[in-house]
Design a protein around this nucleic acid. Structure first.
Lengths: 343, 343
DNA sequence: ATGAAAGCGCTAACAC
DNA sequence: GTGTTAGCGCTTTCAT
């Protein structure tokens, strides 16, 4: 076992070893300013030979430039945020910027901590899910002086820029489509998450639109934790037992909807003849099921792309006016579980 | 629109505003050393009022301490790595350390870039998937002088510590179980990813164990991109058309296995009477399917926990001897698709 | 094309 | 319990 604490290599080491000043070494390593081809090669060779890795901490402090973009999302395990990340990464890959992910698990205090931690690294921008944040978080965001893009939702007031869909509208559209197909006894299945504001807004839009036609949600079921597919299955069984006359089930996400659909098919329930079903998100995953669950695509990759583009543009000084607002319109996918009447 | 470039708040501002020295402000903010309750309160109040967020870049440079752990994984979109992340986060949440994720998409050059970028922030440790890395990556890791934990796989030589399962062994065990159940015409379905070394090792172990019993894989099918569930379905159809006498299908992951299972059930193929099936990973998701696919749990959360623990221990100076090697033993889950003979 | 000096915002180490 | 001093490793700016 050699000594535990190797001193880190510095520009100085490369400078000494190559006989070129620190400053010139720095120039070579950053491709900045004019350097003769000879010194350039020599420096590069020495740096590589020594295994030198620049210290961005020192670099960032000196230049007050940090090529990091903070991305703060509620969860990684539900298939929708990884897709947002894909969109973000796609755009940032063409820039010098790097995404750094923080996960809040839908806890506002956790969001506050993560945000504080991230801002303390002075990133070039922040992308965060949702419009609902603690007062402290809002204060930090505003005080930070960096571009902020709130994503996923446009129903509310943004700190700066915002990219997303209207979940209220999504709920309304779904309700209208369901009513149009002649369904009347409608049940709702969702998560026991008071802090999932987007799910709540969809539900509000949904009931609101139903009310306009004189209908209401006649039964509800909520779950917490566990495998969404299993929960969807179980909840569907429960809600149908309690309310045998339900003719439609609206799920707050595709995973539980898929579980419900598998259950219904297994039980030989005619879908959508006897029972219609719909979920939300438009996850690709659904396409592998025996029947296509009706759903609404939230355009997650697109949201990620647009958000990253805003940050990238501002970081490059390309846009001076803040406060962009991009509302995407979710597309209803009828699949095989919503259409009672032939199209 | 106010001025675009607000000067960032510094310790100095808090110091001036509260009439306490910078040093003492720093002490308060970090809970270090003795500070009188009076000054403490005053400082905290001022910092909060001003909306001061410490600059970790400066702090890290001065203290040469960075509470970041680099986590480098191939992908976020396949359900297994988010689980590893969960395990890592679980352990790190009890420490000062913070995970920072980098994604390589299974490209070694991309891994090299991500690693370089991350090391340039001088993290307290690195957790990265797999044992196969470019020479440059290996050199960087060794030169970094920080704890390195390679995860998921133990079949090979590690740079420092390693936590995972033996995929070769996993493949062998699965083959033995299949043979024991009397299956003889075995097909394999996997991904077209030459760089997924773990999948390859499973396959090698699998064929090797089959060979010992005089059997071999009689048909193979590979896919690329797209929804794994759909692909599993399609590949299963194709492989069965070409080889109607197959009596077992071994899938390189649970998602394509699930697609295949749904297909088989839909077609009325008797599983496992006529056709046995097995996947790999033990994703929770499977539990929602009509039948339980046989699989092998790779213990992803456990791997994440153990890896993070090693980093946390070393960062706390609790362990001086490097090179830990933790091999987890994957558990075969028979489910409903592997057992022909009653247990 | 290259170098020297100053300092980014903080903390370690030492005084008092 | 609190303050002072001297950097951390780099980049900016200005000379040459």
């Amino acid at each position: 076992m050699s000594e535990n604490h190797k001193r880190q290599l510095t520009l100085r080491d490369v400078s000494d070893e190559s006989g070129v000043s620190e400053m010139t070494v720095s120039r070579v390593l950053r491709n900045r300013g004019d350097v003769s081809e000879a010194t350039r090669t020599k420096v590069l060779e020495t740096a590589k030979r020594l295994g030198y890795v620049p210290n961005k901490i020192a670099g960032a402090l000196a230049s007050s430039r940090v090529n990091l973009v903070a991305v703060i999302i509620p969860s990684l395990s539900n298939m929708v945020f990884p897709e947002v990340m894909t969109g973000i990464a796609e755009v940032l890959d063409d820039t010098e910027l790097q995404p750094v992910v923080g996960v809040t698990n839908y806890h506002p205090e956790r969001e506050e901590d993560v945000l504080y931690e991230m801002l303390s690294w002075r990133p070039s921008g922040v992308i965060l899910a949702g419009l609902e944040h603690s007062d402290a978080s809002l204060a930090m965001l505003r005080a930070s002086g960096i571009p902020v893009v709130e994503i996923m939702d446009v129903d509310g007031e943004a700190v700066d820029a915002v990219v997303g869909i209207s979940h209220r509208r999504a709920g309304r559209e779904m309700a209208k489509a369901i009513v149009k197909q002649g369904f009347e006894k409608i049940g709702f299945l969702g998560t026991k998450m008071p802090l999932d504001f987007r799910a709540r807004k969809r539900f509000e839009g949904f009931t609101e639109a139903l009310a306009k036609t004189g209908l209401e949600v006649v039964a509800q079921e909520f779950y917490e934790g566990g495998s969404a597919l299993v929960k969807g299955r179980e909840m569907t069984e429960v809600i149908l037992e309690r309310n045998p006359d339900l003719d439609f089930l609206y799920y707050s996400n595709d995973m539980i909807g898929a579980g419900g659909l598998l259950y219904a098919l297994e039980k030989g329930i005619a879908v959508p003849g006897r029972l219609g079903m719909a979920g939300f998100n438009g996850v690709e995953f659904l396409r592998g099921l025996p029947k296509q669950l009706a759903t609404m695509d939230a355009g997650r990759i697109e949201i990620g792309r647009a958000a990253a583009q805003i940050i990238a543009d501002r970081a490059a000084g390309r846009v001076t006016t803040g406060g962009q607002r991009i509302e995407l319109i979710p597309k209803l996918q009828y699949g095989d579980t919503l259409r009672r009447y032939k199209p």
